[in-house]
Nucleic acid binder design. Structure first.
Lengths: 239, 239
DNA sequence: CATTCACGATGTACGTTGTACACGCGGCTA
DNA sequence: TAGCCGCGTGTACAACGTACATCGTGAATG
């Protein structure tokens, strides 16, 4: 053991060697720790070192035996969340896709970082495949060509991931600037906007800011999802 | 000048001291170089060092005099692209929002990285404000409450950024894996999918893969944009 | 029972990133 | 002529992902 010797210090001076590696590592434990860590961080950013730390392991290198690389770990995390998305058994296709969308939306609310990663990794893990398989089963009754079937599914998932990403980035931005509440945020931007207003440009923008509740969320995710389903339905009927 | 002396090398061995800083730096030049660089990189990722290099400047620190930080530069880049998005003069609100959506979509195609950054930075630059102002002017005729007005605009822009992000990530992934063409990609995933197929699970998924042109893009951006506009119109009429 | 071996975890190290800080050069002003 | 000040540079540091060699330990083998 050639650990860096504290210059002129005896072993006794160090604090005793941290939580003694509670348990065997495993791919599952690594992924679970990564997911938990990402859930806690507002931005969803994680670090191999942080994961190692959480597992009581001193070195990030220990993880590489189980996940290959950070990208590999990312894929595993993504598939983990795909596993939380459910599709009802085949029946009315529109109901199925709606339920899938809502279920995916719930998963994204639990794990906002998922929206970002889902965009950047191909859905090829077992849970992703299972999800796509169920969803394709649900639209089977329409008798559409292959590309159209998967287009239907992707439209719904795209809506979820897009809205999720907007959600994530707003969370991250609020946290980065330390402005958690609507009020604090409004106050911080105040001086800047007043300078803008003084310039007399952007009259409609200024008028919006001065009306009550300008930030209320009025076009909800559920609403937009329904609109997309309307569109898909019209597409299916016009076939 | 106490530059690191090459160990056992004479000065003459170094190449002569590079392109002599063509021109004065400026915020505009820095931003322009950053945008050009991001456009060239498939992932849209850039580096302060790379920008400095492109400007013939030896040190990345020179940029900090003009942009404050990388985040600051990001904001400037984002606003630059916001400046490429146009809204027709007020008239039929639906036409205006559609034109804005299409114009934004064109901008995103030119600068895919914009979709990612637009999500992560608040639209407070001059060009973003001008865009929002024009868009709000276009929906003014509807006589809706403030939050609803801006909700209309955000719905359209959200659709653009969401679709843009999907586009960007697909580009990035293809480039990361070095599989540019559909054919090359299909070939690379082939063995994996065959193992899957052999298992007999995911029957609908496998069936999709085996039909002709499974990857054809069938639900276009324009289509989805129109569906959102349909929804907005119904919302406005039901008011 | 002794020896070998493979495996899980570790320490060290490298290259890359953003950026803080101090310096030096050149042109302007007092 | 002396001082200053804006601009670019070099150096340095912390944090990151991860390649690599190493080591203690329990299982497999002779």
């Amino acid at each position: 053991m050639n650990a860096a010797k504290p210059p002129g210090g005896l072993v006794w001076f160090d604090e005793p060697p941290p939580p003694p590696a509670t348990e065997q590592l495993s791919r599952e434990r690594v992924v679970a720790a990564a997911v938990a860590l990402a859930d806690e961080s507002p931005s969803g950013e994680i670090t191999m070192r942080a994961i190692a730390n959480r597992l009581g392991t001193r070195s990030p290198m220990a993880l590489y035996r189980y996940v290959g690389s950070k990208d590999g770990l990312t894929d595993l995390m993504v598939d983990e969340v795909y596993g939380e998305i459910t599709v009802p058994p085949p029946g009315d296709w529109r109901t199925c896709l709606r339920e899938m969308g809502l279920s995916a939306w719930a998963a994204v609310r639990r794990h906002p970082w998922f929206a970002r990663l889902a965009f950047s990794r191909p859905p090829l893990g077992p849970n992703a495949l299972r999800l796509y398989d169920s969803a394709l089963a649900a639209v089977d009754e329409l008798g559409l060509p292959a590309a159209t079937r998967v287009g239907f599914v992707n439209t719904v998932l795209g809506q979820v991931f897009g809205s999720g990403l907007a959600l994530l980035e707003e969370l991250a931005m609020r946290n980065r600037t330390g402005l958690a509440s609507d009020a604090a945020l409004a106050e911080a931007v105040q001086p800047y906007l007043e300078r803008i207003a003084a310039g007399g440009e952007y009259p409609h923008y200024i008028r919006w800011l001065n009306e009550p509740n300008p930030m209320a969320e009025v076009v909800t995710f559920e609403q937009q999802l329904e609109w997309q389903l309307d569109g898909l339905q019209r597409l299916a009927e016009a076939r």
